[in-house]
């Protein structure tokens, strides 16, 4: 459809009066804003001494949850590695030594470098075995140390639950809503 002449609106720039032409009032206004900011308390977080308050749903380093007997909760169903958009989860399943499940992960490696911390593994997991904690400041000097294997992920669980930063979100010891024992899934702690 061609543009009609009546559709076009011409706009004139606003004319400046004497007040605007002086420019000085605008300068003092800007200086006043600066002065007011100087009198306000500083917003800087003193990071290494002062830890930031992160929301409880912040997605940081992963952990593998333990059940009440201290075993890994994971049932090696590969749902998390399938859901992972960055393909950073590598699981090797083996026949389980325990009677309550068929498989268990012999190795469970997450490449923390490639992970984009989207939380899809957490959503996909049917037994709430993998969770993301609020550990936010992970850094590494080499690629090898950033490959978190099963033991390290379990140690993250121990560390975060004992430190109290990330309490177990599901009823500890239960395999979760998708397993057989769904009779009384405890609600997560309201903290």
């Amino acid at each position: 459809m061609p543009l009609a002449a009546s559709d076009v609106r011409y706009v004139e720039p606003p004319t400046m009066g004497l007040w605007e032409k002086l420019y000085l009032p605008a300068i003092f206004e800007g200086l006043g804003t600066t002065m007011r900011q100087m009198l306000k308390p500083a917003v800087t977080q003193q990071f290494p001494e002062q830890e930031p308050k992160l929301p409880a749903h912040f997605r940081g380093v992963h952990r593998l949850n333990r059940d009440e007997q201290g075993r890994v909760k994971c049932v090696a169903c590969y749902l998390c590695s399938t859901a992972c958009p960055a393909h950073c989860i590598d699981i090797v399943a083996a026949p389980s030594p325990w009677t309550d499940r068929e498989k268990y992960p012999e190795t469970f490696v997450i490449d923390e470098l490639r992970c984009i911390y989207c939380g899809m593994c957490e959503e996909a997991c049917p037994v709430d075995a993998i969770e993301l904690t609020t550990l936010y400041d992970l850094t590494g000097l080499s690629r090898q140390e950033m490959l978190f294997d099963k033991e390290k992920l379990l140690s993250v669980f121990d560390q975060t639950t004992t430190a109290g930063t990330d309490p177990a979100r599901t009823g500890r010891g239960r395999l979760g809503p998708a397993s057989e024992k769904t009779a009384d899934v405890r609600l997560p702690n309201p903290q």
Binding site: Y136, D137, G140, L141
Partner: peptide, 21 residues
Amino acid sequence: VDVYVPGCPPRPEALLEGLMR
């Protein structure tokens, strides 16, 4: 590379942590 800082994107604190390393 000397220090890897993972995250998508990492928190500013994580970058400061990398700088400290």
